[in-house]
Amino acid sequence: MTRVGIIIGSTRPGRNGDTVARWVHDLATKHGGAEYEIVDLADYGLSHLDEAVPAAVGEYAHPHTKRWAAAVGACDAYIFVTPEYNHSMPGALKTAFDFVYAEWHHKAAGFVGYGADGGIRAIEQIRQVMAHLKVADVGPQVSLSLFTDFVNFTEFQPDPRHEASMKTMLDEVLSWAGALRSVRTGSAAQPVA
């Protein structure tokens, strides 16, 4: 069964990410086709990159890094739930990307952004990181506005129209996760010389 990690990309006190992630999880579970798990960056203690050896080497020294590597590696795909801070992704999410390397490879990813403009700039920056980490990110995304999908910027009440966008994004993520399975397991056909 395909495993999809719904990663909460913010660790900020009072964040909206946990509420949005639960909504994503509920819709994804109804959608089916995979096992879905919420992965909260706040549970991993990745405050600053404190590994002496570059992540590409794969020699992790600290317990929090090993736990994070196991969580990332256990997934076949990801849905990143991210706010937009100052036209960018949260620092905690960028740090989480940087802590491990090969565990991200040949997976699929989709995005749910939220913010004044729906988190679109944060998602665009994450897409650049995904390319380097060999993650196939899908085009369809869900963009939630603090003005129209939250009451007083905090109480999450998404417009029902986002459910169709979520379905389209999930269909793509699951399709790509399945297509990349042979690459992840090393059984992909080798190119003919």
Rank of each mutant, 00 (worst) to 15 (best):
M1I: 02
V4G: 02
V4I: 15
I7P: 09
G9F: 05
P13H: 14
P13T: 15
R15A: 12
D18P: 09
T19R: 15
V20L: 12
A21Q: 05
A21L: 07
R22M: 12
H25N: 09
D26L: 00
D26C: 00
H31F: 13
H31G: 05
G32D: 00
G33A: 05
A34F: 03
Y36Q: 00
Y36T: 01
Y44T: 04
L46I: 02
H48T: 12
H48I: 15
H48Q: 11
A52D: 15
V53A: 03
A56Q: 13
G58H: 00
E59H: 10
Y60P: 00
H62I: 00
H62L: 14
H62F: 05
A71L: 00
A71H: 00
V72S: 02
D76L: 08
A77K: 01
Y78V: 03
Y78F: 15
I79Y: 04
F80A: 08
F80V: 14
T82W: 07
P83V: 04
E84R: 04
N86F: 09
M89A: 14
L93F: 07
K94L: 12
T95E: 11
A96S: 15
A96C: 08
F97Y: 15
V100L: 06
A102P: 01
A102E: 12
A102H: 13
E103D: 05
H105F: 09
H106A: 13
A108Y: 07
G110L: 06
F111D: 01
F111E: 06
G113F: 12
Y114A: 11
A116T: 11
D117C: 07
G118L: 06
G118R: 06
R121T: 08
R121H: 13
I123A: 07
V129E: 07
V129P: 02
A131C: 13
H132A: 14
H132D: 13
H132I: 15
L133M: 11
V138I: 12
G139K: 10
G139F: 10
G139N: 10
S143Q: 12
L144C: 08
L146Y: 04
F150Q: 07
F150R: 10
V151W: 02
Q157L: 07
R161H: 14
E163Q: 14
K167Y: 11
K167A: 15
M169H: 14
L170S: 04
E172Q: 14
E172G: 03
S175Y: 13
W176D: 10
A177Q: 06
S182K: 13
R184T: 06
T185M: 10
T185C: 07
T185P: 02
G186R: 13
S187F: 09
A188I: 12
P191S: 01
